[in-house]
Design a protein around this nucleic acid. Structure first.
Length: 276
DNA sequence: TCTTTATGGTGAG
DNA sequence: TCACCCTAAAGAT
């Protein structure tokens, strides 16, 4: 569950069973965090929040459990003390009187006091999260057009958590395809219409992915691809991981390149390079 | 069974 | 830009 929308969904699931409840027991796999098992025991869990791909389980005394799932971490919610049959390593467990919230495989877990939270190295400098309701299209356009960002290639900018928090590698490709913009284009090369398309794609696709659990294709295209049976796995995405397959709009084979150290997928006909 | 890849991120040069 | 770390699953042999 790696990108912002999936993390936010996981936080919602945790919230439903943890928020407002006393945490009766905790388990930390990492030795340096063991001391917190007794310190946090019996406190009430106030909320489960996300900032981009970062998650915070907040306790009523202000202490937070910070976690980042990277590529591998996975949250499970189960009835109390029932563990899924998985070969994965349990890294963190929060038990109420009814439920167990279990974090598997994640390696980036920490406990942060209220005083240290504002200075936390991983949270400082994050951009706005497009899942937040107060982030609208105008705000995204303004950010794209701001001095630190307008000269940067979109391929790199869209992965920068300081630009917008929560976007990741599949959203990058999907956003650029939806906006019809080549990955090497910079915001300063975009006319107002192109900037507006880009901002709309950032918000629409991130929020769609949140609603659908990671499907960025339009609902009708997704249904059509699934029903055709040919592209089950790839049905989620319009371009991402579709190298060599026909573009869903024009039929040209989808390109794959390395940009910003990660793979980006695009259609060279629907997303022409140069000024847009 | 071995190798490669992955929806993430850091730090060195 | 690169090497590297984390862990799991898919792909190649």
């Amino acid at each position: 569950m790696p990108e912002g929308p999936e993390i936010r969904r996981a936080a919602d699931r945790l919230s439903r069973v943890l928020a407002g409840r006393r945490i009766e027991r905790l388990y930390f796999a990492f030795p340096t965090l063991k001391k917190w098992e007794t310190r946090l025991e019996g406190l009430q869990l106030q909320s489960v929040d996300t900032l981009g791909k970062h998650m915070l389980c907040r306790f009523d005394d202000g202490t937070c459990i910070y976690s980042h799932n990277q590529l591998y971490g996975r949250w499970c919610v189960r009835p109390l003390d029932q563990y899924p049959d998985t070969g994965r390593q349990l890294r963190l467990a929060l038990h109420t009187d009814r439920h167990s919230a279990l974090l598997y495989s994640a390696s980036d877990i920490d406990v942060v006091t209220a005083a240290d939270l504002p200075n936390h190295a991983r949270l400082r400098g994050l951009g706005p999260d497009p899942l937040d309701r107060d982030v609208d299209r105008g705000a995204v356009i303004a950010r794209l057009d701001a001095a630190p960002f307008r000269g940067r290639q979109l391929a790199s900018l869209l992965l920068d958590q300081g630009f917008m928090a929560g976007l990741g590698n599949y959203l990058r490709s999907e956003i650029l395809f939806a906006a019809g913009i080549h990955p090497k284009v910079r915001p300063r090369d975009c006319d107002p219409q192109a900037l507006a398309r880009l901002a709309r794609a950032i918000l629409t696709l991130t929020r769609r992915s949140y609603r659908t659990g990671g499907v960025t294709n339009s609902p009708s295209v997704y249904r059509r691809l699934r029903n055709s049976g040919k592209a089950r796995g790839a049905a989620r995405f319009a371009v991402f991981s579709r190298r060599g397959l026909p573009c869903l709009v024009c039929g040209t084979p989808v390109c794959r390149d390395n940009m910003g150290g990660r793979r980006v997928y695009y259609c060279r006909d629907c997303q022409p390079p140069g000024r847009v």
